[in-house]
Simulated scan of single mutants.
Amino acid sequence: MFTGDKLNLPPTEDIQRTFIDFGKNEVISYVDYFPEIQQGRCHIYSYPSVMLYYGDISNNFRGGLFKYVRVVSLYDEHPFGHEFFLRIVQSFPFMQKVCLNNNRSQNRKKSNESNNNNQNLPVIQYSSLSELVIIDVHDDYIEEFLFHTKAYLPYNIILHINHESLQRVTNNFTRDATRINCAKINKLNLSGELKCSNSLKEYFPYAEIRYPLIH
């Protein structure tokens, strides 16, 4: 819903009360407000759920187990922490495609948290993932998925990403912390301005690279 300058969606408690006699399944709802795009969104679903797609998940996501979901999209105007992605994997153990939209820095409080050898964060295993769309994101989230100290990706991943962002995060395709997961990419779909280089091809040795169309 378009909200403009007003917060006009009903409270979660009021929404919940309208589903008291809905059926045997629990009905879950929560409300998100996004001032920058002047939108309010209300998620309402029965639980357990048989949905194949779960869209626009924010930090307000309540968790649960969604074993049928295969496609997930994540959006918020507030940062996603590493723990958020761990919760997503636990809730969607069989998700095959993730689309992420978040331009907020993760706001690391410790200066060493971006260190490649940080051992305080659990490595998240994306066991069923086959396609990752991280085009409109802050560089922190590219690190979140490509650092082998943060994420374990399976082989044969399709990656959609902005070329300039990828170049920055990989230190012009020389960074060791991203090399392992990048070697697992099967198809690399690039967007943005692009300068072809041998180092890109060497960094993604098994990927079919698709360059943006030049107009």
Rank of each mutant, 00 (worst) to 15 (best):
P79K: 09
L7H: 05
K97E: 14
I209C: 05
L121E: 14
Y141S: 10
H215R: 13
F84G: 02
H148Q: 08
P154S: 10
Y45G: 11
N198A: 14
G64K: 08
Y211D: 02
N120I: 13
K184Y: 08
A207C: 05
V133C: 13
I28C: 06
C99K: 11
F92P: 03
G40H: 13
I20N: 06
N118G: 00
Y152G: 02
S58L: 02
Y211W: 12
S58Q: 07
N189T: 04
F147V: 02
I134P: 04
I161N: 05
P212V: 05
H43W: 08
S73R: 09
T149N: 15
Y68S: 15
F66C: 11
F19L: 05
N103R: 11
T12M: 09
T149V: 09
F147E: 06
P122A: 04
I158K: 14
L74K: 10
S128Q: 14
D5Y: 15
N186D: 12
N112S: 08
L132C: 09
K6D: 13
I124Y: 02
V50Q: 14
N116T: 13
N25H: 11
S105P: 08
N189W: 12
N60T: 03
E202M: 13
R17I: 07
G40M: 08
R70W: 01
P79M: 05
N103T: 05
Y75H: 12
F145D: 06
D139M: 01
L132E: 05
Y47E: 06
L188K: 09
L132T: 01
N25Q: 14
L52H: 11
L194S: 04
M1L: 10
N198W: 11
